[in-house]
Each structure stands twice: as structure tokens, then as C-alpha cells.
């Protein structure tokens, strides 16, 4: 092994560890901030208290956990098919000029600040959804806008994954006279599956982490949602909403929501990657 190879090896591994270390630093920070509340209240009460009124001593986070799961999974249900379709579109269906434009549009979508998405949802989409009843600020509105926000992640990663399918496989299929969709279905999608799944996981976690747009659109009432049209508050919206004015003890309670969110994300990620490994 040459000297350059060794340097490369060291640098790349140190980088990998550094990247991973950021998570540990953040986790440590969250635990540190949440400790006073956990010590005083205990994790159990965050699941069993009658309601969420932190200033009156009620700390039930369960409705927020449900709302977080509903909006994030719903967002991926919207973004997944659209994103994969747009990845296939640019490679197999669109004329080259349109493909370039489509890519560009998806990239712009990625750069629109969440507050602008939130404004658009609040001023344009919510009044439309309000026709179904209520104020239009509910889980459905939040899910739709969240889906749009994570769409670029799925689209770009699907695009890359499809691009990585060996050219010979596709040419081979064409030589066999396979039709376009047959090629896509039998060869391209299986080959690019792991890349697409990586994109979906990234989109899912991104949806979990999004704050501002959800805060502006979900209605934020802490009650167990009964339908997609009921308002709900996600864990991170909870931090953003109440942190601004919180006094010391209230602040610590809010960090518990952050901690629980990371817990939820880790469980989801672990479950998905387990299933992925066993099915492969």
C-alpha cells in the first residue's frame, strides 16, 4: 500500500467517525438539557398524563407522537411515488430538454424555505382544504405540504440510483425486445432499489425533522387525532411553539420532546434497515 493510500485511508475513516460523532454530540446536548425534567417528572408521565399543559403540570406527549408519525409517514406516501416517478421520468420518458428542466425545477423545490411553503399552505392551500370543514389547518394540509418539501430528496436520490444501473443491463433488455415499462419494472427498479430506499429513508427522517411549515399548517392542538382533518401538533413544532417564551423548567420539558423525537426516528430507521437486510 502506497503512502498516499494510507493517508487516504486515515482521512476518510476519521471523516466517517467525525460525521457520526455529530449525532453523539447532539444527543449528549439533548440529554443534558432534558435531564432536569426527566429527573423530576420521569419518562412515564410523558405518556400517561391526561393532557399537555406544561405550566399546569400535565405532560402527555402521546398525541404529539401520533401526529408526528402520521404527518411524516403521510408525507413519504405522497413524496415516494411522485419522487420515484420523477426519477424514472427524466431517464426513460422525458425528452432531453424537458428532463433538464424537470431536474432544475426539482432542485428549486429543494431550496424554497419552509416558511415560504408554510405561507403558501396557509394562504393558498388551507382555505381550499377548509371547504372540507374547520379552519383548513389540520394534519392533511401539513402532510401535503410536507410531502412536497421532501419530494426533492426522493427525486434526486432516485434519479442518481437509476443513473447507477449498468448501461449493459438496459441495452440487453432493449436487445431482447423488452418494452420500456418492462425494462423499468424488471431491470431498472430492482437494480436501483437500495438507492431509492435510501432516498426514502432520508426523506422520512427529513419529514420528521421539519418544523416551521408544519407549525404553520397543522393546527397545533394537542389532542389525539381522530381523522386526517383533525388538528395536531408534532413533537418539533411543540419545541418551536413554546420555546420562545419558556422559563427554565418549561424549557427542559420541551427538550424531552426533542429526545423522544430522536428516539422515534432511531426506532423507525432501525426497523427499516433491519427489514431491508433480511429481505435482501
Amino acid at each position: 500500500m502506497s503512502r498516499n493510500d494510507l493517508i487516504l485511508k486515515i482521512i476518510s475513516r476519521v471523516s466517517a467517525l467525525l460525521s457520526a460523532a455529530v449525532v453523539l454530540l447532539i444527543l449528549r446536548f439533548l440529554i443534558h438539557e432534558a435531564t432536569p425534567a426527566l429527573r423530576e417528572i420521569g419518562l412515564y408521565r410523558f405518556l400517561t398524563d391526561p393532557s399537555w399543559h406544561p405550566l399546569s403540570g400535565n405532560f402527555n406527549l402521546k398525541p404529539m407522537i401520533v401526529a408526528t408519525l402520521v404527518t411524516s409517514l403521510g408525507a413519504v406516501l405522497i413524496a415516494g411515488p411522485l419522487g420515484i416517478a420523477s426519477g424514472l421520468f427524466v431517464h426513460f420518458y422525458a425528452p432531453p430538454a424537458l428532463a433538464t428542466w424537470h431536474r432544475r425545477i426539482v432542485e428549486i423545490l429543494a431550496g424554497i424555505p419552509s416558511v415560504v411553503f408554510g405561507l403558501w399552505g396557509l394562504v393558498v392551500l388551507a382555505p381550499i382544504i377548509a371547504n372540507l370543514g374547520g379552519s383548513g389547518q389540520n394534519l392533511l394540509t401539513a402532510t401535503v405540504v410536507l410531502g412536497l418539501m421532501v419530494l426533492p430528496t426522493v427525486a434526486v436520490l432516485s434519479d442518481n440510483a437509476v443513473a447507477a444501473v449498468p448501461r449493459e443491463a438496459i441495452q440487453g433488455a432493449a436487445a431482447l425486445g423488452m418494452s420500456r415499462w418492462a425494462t423499468v419494472w424488471n431491470i431498472v427498479l430492482p437494480e436501483s432499489r437500495s438507492g431509492i430506499v435510501a432516498g426514502i429513508i432520508l426523506a422520512l427522517t427529513r419529514a420528521f425533522g421539519e418544523t416551521m411549515a408544519v407549525l404553520m399548517l397543522a393546527g397545533n392542538v394537542v389532542e389525539m387525532p381522530t381523522s386526517l382533518l383533525s388538528p395536531g401538533r408534532t413533537l418539533n413544532a411543540n419545541i418551536a411553539l413554546e420555546l420562545g417564551y419558556a422559563s427554565t423548567s418549561h424549557r427542559s420539558v420541551l427538550f424531552v420532546s426533542g429526545l423522544i423525537l430522536m428516539l422515534v426516528v432511531s426506532v423507525m430507521v432501525t426497523v427499516i434497515s433491519r427489514r431491508r437486510r433480511t429481505t435482501q
Partner: peptide, 9 residues
């Protein structure tokens, strides 16, 4: 993967 799910706030 977990890092991607950390809320921006």
C-alpha cells in the same frame, strides 16, 4: 440516518 431526523430547531 438519525442525524437527518434531528429537527432544525
Amino acid at each position: 440516518d438519525i442525524l437527518a431526523g434531528v429537527p432544525s430547531i
